[in-house]
Design a protein around this nucleic acid. Sequence first.
RNA 1: GCGGGGGUAGCCAAGCCUGGUCAAAGGCGCAGGACUGAGGCUCCUGUCCCGUAGGGGUUCGUGGGUUCAAAUCCCACCCCCCGCACCA
Length: 967
Amino acid sequence: MWCAWIMKARSPMPYEEKWAKRWLEERVFEADPIPGAPKIFVCVPYSYQNAPLHVGHGFTYTRGDAYARFKRMQGYNVLFPWAWHWTGEAVAGTCERLKRGDEAVKRMLVEIDGVPEELLEKFTDPAFVTRYYTEENREVVKAMGFSVDWRREFYTTDLHPYYSRFIEWQYITLRNLGYVAKGRHPVVWCPRCESPTGDHDRLVGEGVSPEEYTLVYFKLDEYDAFLAAATLRPETIFGVTNIWINPRSEYVLIEVDGKRLIVSRQAAEKLQHQMKVKVTERIDPEKLIGKFAEAPITGVRIPIFPADLVDPDFGSGVVYSVPAHAPYDYAGIVALRRNEERLRRYGIKEIVESIKPISIIRVPGYGDYPAVEEVERLGITSDTDPKLEEATKTIYSKEFHSGVMKENCGEYAGKSVAEARDLMKQRLIELRLGGVMWELPEKVVCRCGTETVVKIVEDQWFLRYSDPEWKRKVKEHIMRMNIYPEEARQWFLNVVDWLRDWACARKTGLGTRLPWDPNWIVETLSDSTIYPALYTISKYLNLGIVKPEQLTFEVLNYVYLGAGDPSEIAARVGLSESILRQMREEFLYWYPVDMRISAKELVPNHLTFYIFQHVAIFEPRHWPRGIGVNGMVKIEGEKMSKSKGNFIPLKRAIEIYGADATRMTLLLAAEDLDDPDWRDKNAREAMRMLETILKICEQVASIEEAEESEADAWLLSTLQRRIERITSNMEVLKTRTAASEAIYGLYNDWKWYLRRNGGRIGRAARIFMETWIKLLAPFIPFTAEEAWSILGKSGFVSLERWPEPDKRLINEVVELREEILTRLMEDVRSIIEVYRRNPRRVIIYLAAPSKIRMLEKALEILDARPHNPVGELIRWIMSERIIEAKKAPNMARLIFDLISAYSSRYAREAILEVAKSEKTFYERARDFLERELGALVEIYEEGAEGIYDPRGKALSALPLRPGIYVE
RNA sequence: GCGGGGGUAGCCAAGCCUGGUCAAAGGCGCAGGACUGAGGCUCCUGUCCCGUAGGGGUUCGUGGGUUCAAAUCCCACCCCCCGCACCA
């Protein structure tokens, strides 16, 4: 019933569909345990099914697939499975918006995601949406040629017949181990929607998260109550000189936890989301002003002053004033002193005059009163000057990072500001002279238009990632893992350090219910951690060998942990013992995951959780072995996003360029943590390249072999080096380098070979071609299969053995000769270019035998690693009278320049052999040179009889670098 | 702010760990030529500046330093990108 809606991605490359079909039909990528055979388990994170897969997915997946294919060809038994993520709240959110008739959602679905309009009505059902995309994306994954064992496929949530059983097992196990616990935590909350307001659900305030303020209670002489001031800097209590309240705001008396507190009316409302608050009466601020209150800890009595700078909508609407270290406070005092009307009205003139900043923090670069200095430096004159914000930031940060508490701070004296801050907060709370208030540093407005507050969610289930012991184990394992690129390792370690407890359950969306508390649904990132383990047995469920209901806690405990007696367990669930044992064996065979490949956005969450959960649940031998991290795709240099309209679904890429060109474009775009840039130009170039490869293949397949030449030896020799480089790069997931070598590196070799061979195709061509196709197979598998069949090969190149470099075919002499030949051509061209005329004759002078002896000596000297090799060679040249003494130093230098280019890459023997056989070599290459240079080529040896040398160029001849004269 | 990555020629991007072979791979773009009926295909050549001889000069975010020698090592600074938790 689904197929009617799903349009297959049609590649413009006619052969792609054919091979995709054959791979499936012949079950090429289905992997079962082979006892004794080495295995590799490669996987990529499953994607959330709320949209079509895009080229960003394509990048990560292609890397994963290329690695899987590479390892498969190397002879490993490779498992590369696939699944779909349905868990989460986003789809439900979209469905809701659609239900409400949101035009933007409709447009996005139809225009960007390509959903048929008549289906929109069904898109109000989350399950339908995820199913729809799964059906569509599965076709895309197949069309991309990912080498998946489809028998193991599943999707998540309790809509699936058995996935939730796995999640339940995971969470019961985690809870039994003490890794799941209940707690409370602050969220940005929309009072109207009665739900947390995530970043993507906001009209205003993206990226804003709750900040923790400390409430400091100041005992009032009257009301038998406390003024509760909210602050980010409780350590400054030693410097308090007064309290600020806003005379134009409303204040209320509230009861919290048996304490009577005074805060602004607005603050009282907000606090109701964070604690049990009872509002008892209104308080007139006018009556408070001029009164005194007692500061906690210090016991100092301080006056209450009016200030407009106090915002009743922010914090508690009560501020305590530390003019020495808080620019706002200092500016407030200054402003109040000038406000005769207020001073008179409240009768506080004298007391205000007497206020002196109290210095309590020593900070490098400032005197006793940093706030005063900063206010004066910026020329701030009013307490509403916007520059105060900047001043506050500067002081806050300076004091936090390098401030030390002064002697007048009691037991906190000498401690850093950062340390004192935490201790003071703790102490105030202990003494019940303070509390915690969460506040948003900026306004956040929900998509529904309501301004949000901070709510403390009670009874929230957490994964206890803050557990030091758990962290330690995870970090130790990270140190041992294969992580590519290496830079990502430190990142992981930092993330582990920084990770707090993770709220692992939600009230809404699709997913699996917590088995012991079904009001909660396991959160999306929390349910997608150890599921690679499910791949090892999902085959049994999908093939109907095991029934979903047989996947009990006991069964899973046995399969994954080896717990319990298999025959008893099997009997209890009505499963044959051998099947149960086989599942255990299969898990043991495939696990651990050898390589998990993902984009870097998942480092701070999924990938780290993945390690945590494995470390918690499984035996150490089953902990993940390798992780590969990559960048995130950009489109023509810009971030890809649906709103920008530069969103490229994989399906569309396939339809325009074909799967292989898409794969190739992505692979060549970046590796390591760099962000690949998708460019249409590059994709079109990739298409042409694929055609070219097939053309070359046809040529090689059809043409009769010419006689073997030196070019054949060169082609095979250089091929070995390519094999080596591609292989070693693939081992460390340098997919870009590897693909580039495999595609362009070998292509350039081929071009040179043809050129050098005058277009003749020799014996090496076929060997080269076969090897080339194999080397291409992990990257552009469709084209590789097609090429393989063009060569007349049967079977799949995907299953061929990966080439290994054959040392015997490496021929340094031949390689070096090609190198000096190209060097010669470059030199000649460079001369012609300056000469600016087409040459008729090019004369080449080869170095005299005495100079070859000089080269030999130079190599000897270099081997001995003396202090002054050049000097030694000069002395030798002069003693042997190779050249007139005056020119010896220059000659020596030239020789060393020359061999420095070769000596590290070529053996001494090879260099000498090439030098000694230059004459015959250039004679053989003469036809080629004439063809290339479009001129007659003559070759002489320096000092030979009858030499034609009108400009004395023979003298400049060096071994491996002949003299040149152009006419 | 904290953490991670990065700044290389017209563009994209390698090189940097393991200094010299680096005026700096490869691709794109551009220019010239070959092929062709023609070409938006393919191939060759060139593409920092100067030069009628293979050379010289100035370059690899900025400023210092180490070294016989630095794109590569060290220090400081500037700029850009990404993540920072209830979104997956």
